[in-house]
Amino acid sequence: MPDTALLKKKLLHIAATGSVSQFTPEQLHSHYQELNQFLALHKDTLDSIELFNLYELEFYSCILTNHDIEAKAVIDLLLDQFQSNSKSQRIKLLQSIYYEAIGDGKQATQLLTQDPDELSLSRRLVTFSRSDGSDKYIKNLCYYLDLQPSDLSAWAELGNEYKKIGKYQDAIYCLKEILLHEPLAYPVFYKVGLYHYYLFLQELAKPKTRLHDLIQLLTQARDNFLVSVEINDKYDKSWVGLYILANHEFNQDDKFKKKTEKLKSLVQKKVTELHIDISSIIE
């Protein structure tokens, strides 16, 4: 029997961080059961803020585990409680998610377009155009980012979309926007490095590319990986990136060999230290 206070803390933490969206199916399933059980047993001991935060979490868990009817029940419960304040963005957001989940896109859109001041609803509305192809989605994201220029998750999403269609330069621009707000986000530095490397590969495949540009790209990729490991020495992804760059055929050239020698030995050391299985990754 787990400690109730600890369990409560854990569930509230999940509710606050929204990490439920990144659970694996097994995790999600056990989380759903745990939450249901907890709410059934300890509903009365929670204060109202905790209770409704957990109800919100339960709604998301229901949606993610395909429990539509239960999700509807949670929404009705929230509506009963907050009917007097039916303008609440938070509830409208949940309602729109429910409508989208049962395939009623029209009603969901209608709910989201009622008031231009409700910006978190506009953000959700933007995601509706995902299915209309990348170009439309990117256009909508750009429009939204013009309204909310420091919404970091929207920038990340836009970067991801650009990456999907191979516009790495634009993707890097978006990621740099995140870094300007969060200058210690080493996974983002890793991503910037990775996109530079992709860009390098893209340019390499083109018939007429200046060698200087290619070297520039590789250097930038390397520098970003290096900044990432400078912030977090144990971030294995960046070490793998550095390993690949150091062993790249470009660097086997005698001209560069001298310069990269030290880096190569350092990367080799780190890879063994962190027990990274390079062979499986490279394949």
């Binding site: 309204l147 909310q148 420091s150």
Partner: peptide
């Protein structure tokens, strides 16, 4: 009940945020 800010003011605030973060953290740019 808490009122929403008009979206234009939100946009203004966000843009100022963006400018400020540029001032503060421009060292991460080339």
């Amino acid at each position: 009940s808490p009122k929403l800010q008009p979206y234009k003011q939100e946009r203004e605030r966000h843009f100022l945020d963006r400018a400020k973060s540029f001032t503060a953290h421009n060292h991460i740019l080339t």
